[in-house]
Nucleic acid binder design. Structure first.
Lengths: 211, 211
DNA sequence: CGACACATGTAACACGTTACATGATTTG
DNA sequence: CAAATCATGTAACGTGTTACATGTGTCG
């Protein structure tokens, strides 16, 4: 619900029309991500459906302004006031994939780790290079005056930092995974499909239930 | 595409029916996540639609086995052979949220960071405690014999590690974010909506085009 | 019997994402 | 004029996720 919530939070500052919302989203989230315009209108429709924004009539220039409702404002307050909850059983692809691969026969998990490591290292380096570069999209005009830290550059920095820290963590985890793999005797890793005849119905209790 | 790919990879080991797939998925991915059974059948339908698996007739016990096709096997090979690509413009909620919040007037970003930090620290501690516990779901029978590292426990460990490393990275990032915020003078952070009359049509070139 | 797990499936929904259609306006 | 941007919108799709309906077999 990142996009949805972000747009709503921007609308909490004042009425906006679609294209404007996209621009604000980019300015404020340091989004390197393009965010297709169509998605804005899409999301606005859904927000209106949920009673969080209301659509105004087009003004003389044809701009369709949306404004937030009380319910919408409340939701923004809630969003900002609540910590982001990572689900306990995170469905992160990489760990899932590697864990699964480790249980498959004939899969070169070490190789997978090596490949992933190379990729992530490259990503990390690219990110660090990008951090030195001036603001993306600045076509010359402001190339020299890179000082004056504004909210805009802060946003970009924060997002960039996050990517860097995440990539670093991934590298550390990959190393740890390699260790774990080395600790385990190779034979015991691959799992056969559990072909035991599944017995239908209630399974017998193994231990006495509590109480 | 984590679930989809995982199920396909399991099917690459041999035909399975729905419930069996769920069990295998849990065994092999150390998934603390429940994974609703309905999703299995859902995903199987979609895999069949895409020609990656084929549905067999029900056997005498009423079990409907699915088996992988050649195209399916190829896709599994591809999946395992390719590194997980993190999109450059990651749409990670936390950085997005904080970056955006930093541009909003009257938002206590420092407080947000503090709250998030507390939450993440709690998560981290819970994860570390969980790492010491015996295998989840083991109802007494195997409580003492915690040795014998099998593929099953490896999977669990890998996933658990990933969560820990990620939480640690998040804490580090939060600290960095606090630093960044402190570096910026408070006034310059909040961004007004850009209300300049947008001029339609092609914007003037700022720098001469290449060539 | 009743509870519970095994087992299969259907229907809907959420969010994100993309492709496409359409038109106005401004610059080169 | 042609190209590019601004601007609005529609239609579809993909994965993940949940709620629900239905039935069977076993154990206490």
């Amino acid at each position: 619900m990142s996009v949805r919530s972000s747009l709503l939070a921007i609308l909490d500052q004042g009425p906006c029309y679609g294209y404007q919302l996209r621009a604000e989203f980019h300015r404020r989230t340091g989004a390197s991500s393009p965010l297709n315009v169509g998605q804005i209108y899409n999301t606005l429709d859904r927000l209106e459906r949920d009673g969080l924004v209301s659509r105004g009539d087009a003004d003389e220039q044809g701009h369709v302004y949306y404004m937030i409702t009380d319910a919408g404002s409340a939701e923004v307050g809630d969003w900002l006031g609540t910590a982001v909850a990572r689900p306990t059983g995170t469905r992160d692809e990489l760990p899932l994939k590697l864990a699964l691969a480790a249980t498959l026969p004939g899969v070169d998990v070490t190789g997978m780790i090596a490949r992933q490591r190379a990729e992530t290292r490259a990503t990390l380096e690219a990110l660090r290079h990008a951090a030195d570069d001036p603001a993306p999209g600045a076509r010359g005009q402001d190339a020299g005056a890179a000082a004056s830290p504004s909210g805009e550059t802060l946003a970009r920095q924060l997002v960039a930092d996050a990517l860097v820290y995440q990539a670093e963590a991934e590298l550390r985890w990959l190393d740890r995974a390699a260790e774990r793999l080395a600790e385990h005797p190779a034979r015991t890793l691959a799992l056969e499909l559990d072909l035991e005849r599944p017995r239908r119905g209630r399974p017998p209790l193994v231990a006495a239930p509590i109480g």
